[in-house]
Amino acid sequence: MVKKVAELVQGIGEGKEGALARALTLVENRGSGYRELLDEIFPLITPCPIWGLTGAPGVGKSTITNFLAGELVEKGEKIAIIAVDPTSPFSGGALLGDRVRMMDLAGKPGVFIRSMASRGALGGLSPAIMDAIALFQAFQVDRIIVETVGVGQSETDIVALADSVTVVMMPGTGDDVQTIKAGLLEIGDIFAVNKADLEGAETLAGLLQSMISSRTEEGQSHQPPVLKMIASQGNQLEQLLQEFFHHQEYLNRGELKEKKERMRGEMALKMHLQARFQDLFLGPLLGSEEWEQALKSITGREKSPAYWAEKMIPGRD
């Protein structure tokens, strides 16, 4: 296994797509040797900007990604795209269909697209996503675009992992006052109202604009722009690219960049701790004799779940 890891690390260092792809699978599967792998590639990492796109299914995220990546590759950049789709809670399988929309990028040199299922994460992002980012940075990409379906936890997760987040919305899909209040406003550095030729686009954009204005504190230099666009016709996409660059510059000017780095480190650390907790504590307990005993006692109203948790993993309070 050590040999395998060494080969992968070497391949990544040499810029081999095949090695990177296998390494991504290894971290995604938490397969044997994945910790060594992450440890080995850690010194190879060259940080690069990470852009996030989030929004409900069908709002046009992949169309936007298709354009952004296309433009950046034209400029000579090496781009990684991580497209995350939810895992089916029933079968554990997933349909990863974002490549359908990225026709222009298919097979293009300089673009590496990886489709990831959210797997175990409860509505959030796969814990492996932080590791995937590390692998891509070790692969020396110039920029990473992460595309996530904006449901549940993943919306807030994306703030922690991306430098700049665009929230994509469209009229007539329940992107209204309620959902905006539910936290989207806090995570967007840029807002894109796609399919702006549809009824209700003006209202949605206006609503966003006024909520952003009232939220932005005085003296805060970045006020998230609201772009109305028709991505399928290429309308305003160049503008979005520029806004991403603006936000990047804004981050580079202040201390925010470091803050982002810290957030990302913290999230990665938490995810790995959770994984270790899973492996070392929860995993062995599941289905064990003690587990069955505890369940019997809980359903029999003998002892509380709190009691059992402490008994199973004793420690200070």
Partner: peptide
């Protein structure tokens, strides 16, 4: 006119 891109599956 550009080309049509199918929606994601």
């Amino acid at each position: 006119y550009g080309e049509y891109q199918a929606p994601t599956f």
